[in-house]
């Protein structure tokens, strides 16, 4: 018991320190300057977050796919906030081995990861390649119609 208790600080010190955690506080992003069909990349906790202003075509494509046919089944509605269907907010880190996918590339009008060829659709869901899961949606909410808070 004593030995394990002594071991704990030696392991726990490796986790993010207080300043790193503090720097990971929520951030606010203004959506007004992002035109339809455009997207921006902001950094939160050292991770790139893609905010896409999706076109009607992209939304339709994402919703037409039968959910059960997806490798990681999730509906597009579950990945965006209700009433803000055009806004897709995802963490831009490939769920395979952590590279940054490129927006507006690949066969699904979404993201393409240059490292090992994973392709995500316009809802950030994995469609093809070695990645096991969809691009994660970070915790965020709309503060107003044109502003979100991530974190």
């Amino acid at each position: 018991m004593g030995g394990l208790a002594t071991l704990w600080p030696f392991v726990a010190q490796m986790n993010p320190d207080a300043s790193t955690i503090a720097a990971g506080a929520p951030i606010e992003v203004d959506l007004a300057p992002i035109a339809e069909g455009q997207d921006i990349k902001v950094f939160w906790r050292g991770k790139p977050v893609y905010i896409s202003h999706r076109t009607k075509k992209q939304i339709d494509e994402a919703r037409k796919v039968p959910v059960s046919s997806l490798p990681d089944p999730q509906s597009d509605e579950a990945r965006v906030k209700e009433g803000h269907d055009q806004w897709l907010v995802v963490i831009g880190i490939c769920t395979h081995l952590g590279c940054i996918p490129i927006a507006h590339e690949g066969n699904y009008d979404g993201f393409f990861c240059p490292c090992h060829g994973s392709q995500y659709d316009s809802s950030g869901r994995i469609r093809q390649g070695p990645a096991p899961a969809n691009l994660p949606v970070p915790p965020y909410q709309f503060v107003s119609d044109s502003k979100i808070q991530i974190g």
Partner: peptide, 22 residues
Amino acid sequence: NLFSAVPYFGDSIVTLLWGGYS
């Protein structure tokens, strides 16, 4: 990120290795 393939603990292990969120 290879360690994130570990079931259940994967992400915690990776955070531990990084000492941060990336």
